[in-house]
């Protein structure tokens, strides 16, 4: 009995820092965000009750919906591209090869480098007249691409860059998933005369289902946070085509000091994120 109470006491002491931190930096902001969405506040003058005005404004804010659309467009290019490339290299790395560790380390390198560095570097690679990418394209006889300068190409460009930065992470995840598939499955499939494509389609993909879900959810959540890349590369332009939802919220809050409205946007956007992730989970679970 005495022992129980000593465990009770040390248990509470050990978790006390978590609860204190939670109260200040999670519970308070969560509660305050609910209050904030009904107010107008520029931080300097007294806070002002506005009822549902922030929400009414939100539904008339074309630029916000453009920003959400931009973010979704980014995800729709980024995620399939990333999954295809990551799967491709993971399958290659899963063969009997030498230097697997080396290749894995090289593909993973951009993952650990700051998005700030990657953006500044790619700004030069994307340069229209003299960038590495366009030099490469004209080298093989293709026309130059206006990358970040064109409204149509700007967001796809950022999606390509983000894929280059993150794909190593997903290669490693898929590789780990592939290594859990028993080799005997492929052997019996071969005996039954299944082609490589059939094996990939009927064994590899279904067995990777849980990895696929993890990859989708992680890259979706990461993609919804898209901020520093457009902030550095384009500032949201040209013609607001790379204005991500996160960048728009940031601008509303810190360029225009509209705290209540920015909090409302964050609130609304958080629900979109949750909804998309839940739908993805349903779809992937049904698919296989």
């Amino acid at each position: 009995m005495k022992k129980m109470s000593s465990q009770q006491r040390s248990g509470l002491v050990l978790i006390a820092p978590y609860w204190i931190h939670f109260l200040f930096f999670m519970a308070y902001p969560l509660v305050f965000s609910v209050i904030l969405v009904f107010h107008k506040w520029d931080v300097y003058t007294p806070i002002q009750w506005v009822g549902f005005n922030n929400f009414i404004r939100l539904f008339h804010d074309d630029l916000f919906f453009q920003a959400i659309f931009n973010t979704l467009l980014f995800l729709m290019i980024h995620i399939p591209l990333q999954i295809a490339i990551a799967l491709f290299f993971a399958v290659l790395l899963n063969q009997k090869i030498r230097g697997r560790g080396f290749f894995r380390a090289v593909y993973f390198l951009p993952v650990i480098i700051s998005g700030v560095v990657i953006s500044i570097l790619w700004q030069q690679l994307f340069s229209q007249e003299t960038g590495v990418l366009n030099n490469l394209l004209s080298g093989i006889g293709l026309p130059k691409v206006p990358w970040l300068n064109s409204p149509e190409w700007a967001m796809p460009s950022i999606a390509i860059m983000a894929t280059w930065k993150n794909v190593g992470f997903y290669i490693v995840l898929f590789l780990a998933g592939l290594q859990t598939i028993p080799y005997s499955l492929y052997e019996s499939a071969k005996i039954d005369g299944a082609s490589s494509w059939q094996q990939f389609h009927r064994i590899t993909l279904p067995m990777l289902n849980s990895t696929m879900l993890l990859v989708m959810i992680l890259s979706t959540i990461g993609g919804f946070s898209l901020f520093i890349e457009p902030y550095i590369l384009t500032g949201g332009g040209p013609m607001n085509r790379t204005l991500s939802a996160m960048l728009y919220i940031y601008k509303q809050a810190f360029y225009f000091n509209r705290m209540g409205y920015a909090a409302t946007l964050g609130f609304f956007f958080a629900f979109i994120i949750l909804a998309v992730v839940l739908v993805q989970r349903k779809v992937v679970e049904q698919e296989y």
């Binding site: 509470l12 978590y18 969560l30 946070s225 919220i249 949750l274």
Partner: peptide, 30 residues
Amino acid sequence: KFRGRGLMLNTILFTMMIPFQLTMIPLYIL
């Protein structure tokens, strides 16, 4: 073994689902 262990575990799992987009502005105001 202590009372409140389950609550703590559930709270952590819950907070991990909260996107930063939601708490960013109020956290700045704090």
